[in-house]
Design a binder for these strands. Structure first.
Lengths: 227, 227
DNA sequence: TGCTGCTGTAATCAAATTGTTATCACTTTG
DNA sequence: CAAAGTGATAACAATTTGATTACAGCAGCA
């Protein structure tokens, strides 16, 4: 993954610390935007949709965690790492309860900050794993290969995309409109009612020729779901 | 949110620490399974699909991070929090690079552990499930599943929508016109007087086959209500 | 060009859901 | 208590939806 496309916001009122953090993140390859207060940040988030935010707890005007809480309440789910000089358990609890994902106490190691950033980006889906496993099925996204019980099986491109969407939304019923949009793409002119049924049928038979595994089940009147 | 359905695995070779962690997590409401080594864990993961794992770095047989790395390489994406007695930056780096999501150094505050667990569960989408409950019934709106006394029961699409409207308006008598509009939709040409009665009958029987619960009661001359 | 494999379409079959009808039971009311 | 109105229940039929199969068009390729 090219990190220069990943936008990180840093909010920190001590300008020397801000510069230092910016420097280290830029050196790690990220695209960084720093703020000295929470002013204008909301506007920036709306426009740029950053992948992660690093927020000092002790900010002029508005407490960092208060800002995050407000942000969460209007629907932004951007991952947040809090920075703080304080180390009281009380503060830590407040930070997490208000929607923080991680918490670091100053002075901190920049290496550790980078590591925690990467872990959080991975978890929030910005950096993607190259293999995904579901029950006894393994999807190798890089190589475009599928293994059932460690035996490779051949899926067509369409079937692979289809199954991948199911794995990404395991347990959730996916309706036909969603699948059409997600797998076939919005433009796809050709389309008949039962096309998806047929595609699903083919996929299910390839994954489980004997028919005892029931990886994918129909949800009557909706679509299908990965059990 | 009901945490009793959330399965957490703890791998820790010092049995007193393991017990302590198990105790605190159980007290917080989670369903916990402890292991003294990584043996058998892989099998457990495949079968139970836990929501999170807490892994000691220093385990007999196999290093904790090595185990996680192996797990990741075959496609398991379960969130992991590492525990360690060591505090060398080297170890921390290794833990994150091998796929850990968070890292805590012993001795640690149990409160902080719980907070970090919750943050990670939130971020990995476990706590965001949209659930509605009423008495001992749980509606999982995302998964389109219904549980009565923690046992899943099968409702049809119509029954699900029907029951959902009742839960949304718990205690309030809903008349037949409202239900027709809300559940069947305004256009529905086909309609007979007693259709709703029959649908309600079928719903009630599925929710409460024995007939002792009286979730839904008729309101004479009006419609029905959730008691 | 002819072969091969992928994918959409159509037709048929099977199954689940839902509406209708008839009958019975219960509540309300005079 | 009787009568009317309303809800419950069971059986049946219609409708909707999913599975399966066969076929045809098409792209890629030797």
């Amino acid at each position: 993954m090219d990190r220069t496309e990943i936008e990180i916001v840093v909010i920190e009122d001590e300008s020397d610390i801000l510069e230092l953090v910016e420097y280290h993140l830029q050196k790690a390859g990220y695209c960084v935007t720093g703020f000295l207060s929470t002013e204008r940040v909301e506007q920036f988030i709306e426009e740029e949709n950053p992948s992660l935010m690093i927020v000092d707890r002790n900010l002029p005007g508005m407490e960092g965690s208060e800002f995050v809480s407000k942000m969460r309440s209007v629907g932004y789910d951007t991952p947040v790492i809090f920075l703080t000089a304080r180390d009281r358990e009380q503060d830590l609890e407040e930070g997490f309860l208000r929607g923080g994902d991680d918490y670091m106490t100053k002075p901190f190691s920049h290496k550790e900050l980078i590591l925690r950033i990467e872990a959080l980006l991975r978890r929030s889906g910005v950096l993607t794993a190259e293999k995904v496993r579901y029950r006894d099925i393994t999807l190798d996204l890089k190589r475009h290969e599928v293994y059932v019980e460690h035996r490779q099986i051949a899926l067509t491109n369409l079937e692979f995309k289809l199954f991948h969407t199911f794995v990404k939304n395991a347990g959730q019923p996916l309706d036909r409109d969603y699948l059409r949009e997600e797998v076939w793409g919005g433009e796809s002119t050709v389309f008949h009612d039962k096309t998806i049924n047929v595609a699903m049928n083919r996929l299910k038979k390839k994954l489980d020729p004997e028919g005892g595994k029931h990886y994918i089940e129909p949800v009557w009147g909706i679509g299908y779901k990965l059990t």
